[in-house]
Design a protein around this nucleic acid. Sequence first.
DNA 1: CGTAGACCCTGCGCGC
DNA 2: TGCGCGCAGGGTCTAC
Length: 274
Amino acid sequence: MPELPEVEVLRRSLEPYLVGEEVRRIEVRSPALREPLDAAELERRLAGHRIERLGRRAKYLLVDVDGGSTLAVHLGMSGRLTLVPGETPPERHEHLAIHLASGRKLRLRDPRRFGLAFALATAGVAADGPFAHLGVEPLSDRFSGTALREAARGRRGPVKPFLMDARTVVGVGNIYACEALYRAGIHPSRSVARIARARWNRLAGAVVEVLSDAISEGGTTLNDFRNGAGESGYFQVSLAVYGREGEPCPTCRAPIRRRVHSNRSTFYCPRCQR
DNA sequence: CGTAGACCCTGCGCGC
DNA sequence: TGCGCGCAGGGTCTAC
């Protein structure tokens, strides 16, 4: 479900409600996510602590509490994190509820169970465990065409899976990889070894632009993305190619094509993208 | 070493 | 109306 823009929209929507809140208790209703939820660890690191800030690294939402711990949540494909009154009955596939001093609860629902939630020492976010291999943040000033070109050195294969590889740049999933390549006019099957400097620069610019546009429109809602208040986003109406196989390209009217890279659907315009 | 494909899981929409 | 199939925004693991 979520790529970087959706997680960022979620972060911004929850921040004003969560900062200053105190975590009362952790309720693990069903531990089976990609890694089993560790109720004892969540309780030990979070309960009794005050939430100081909400951050994001790649597609992880980070909830920092006082005392030096962080809750990391990854929504996988189908995860949804919402803030509701504490007495709200549990819903189907509600794995985790974090009960807050105000009486509300932050609940994580994830039907497909590809998501993750764990607590760790805040200092570990920079380099530990699941964060260790992550590449550059696309909305940071360390991201550029040069960064992409250098990441591509010694690599082979099509640019589209390269762009979705978190070692290259984080947060770019299937939708925004397709859209960025379209905006940059680069064919998704083009080999990374055959992209000139100017086109790397153009691609980096397109990545920043498409992610920023999506954030400002509240994210993309295809089936079930909602922000922390349960509201949907609007960027899906701005998608030029994703999910539009057979429809005319917004630029040249050629029918949008679909093909598969690494088991993921890729949508592109065969005329505008070379 | 790198890349391509299978796989994890449930739900939904579509065609028959 | 009911059923089977294909597909879904995530990441990781294995085979080559």
